[in-house]
Amino acid sequence: MNRYGLKEKIELRINHATHHIEVDVRDTLLDALRDQLGLTGTKRGCDMGECGACTVLMDGKPINSCMLLAVDVMGRNIMTIEGLAQDELHPIQQAFVENGAVQCGFCTPGMILTAKAFLDHCSNPTDDDVRQAISGNLCRCTGYRKIVEAILDAASRLRRGKRHV
């Protein structure tokens, strides 16, 4: 049984690296990522689980990092937007850039991670599948059309990539 008081030293696994940080027990994963680890690619749009800007992947699944306490994610594998591109942009990132799916960019990191988790399981989606998958990521700029197109485009890039391997 673990008990925690006001301030705690915790261990987080983020983008395949282990971090030891001190958090306030009230800190959410989002707070820890942004304030303690400087991983500011994860955005805060509402802090209430409503907008998806803070989406990160936990054990491969998209979650709202503003709705989980940092002390509650020990032992889980977290991926943030900073962990997606390896040497070059990930095909989803490329597709977002080239299809004009990025305007202000505030929804973009969360949107891309949601798309990543989705395309990991669904390689040949329809327009509606994509919309269902990103229905928890609000975007106020684009009207979603170019985001959906980018994700469909990314899916076909990923399929092509797989065939080549």
Binding site: R44, I81, E82, L89, G100, V102, P109
Partner: peptide
């Protein structure tokens, strides 16, 4: 395409917060 989309898709773009 917008060049500023690149730092935005990688999370490097810096917003005020």
């Amino acid at each position: 395409p917008r060049p500023d989309a690149i730092p935005k898709v990688t999370g490097e773009a810096v917003y005020t917060d």
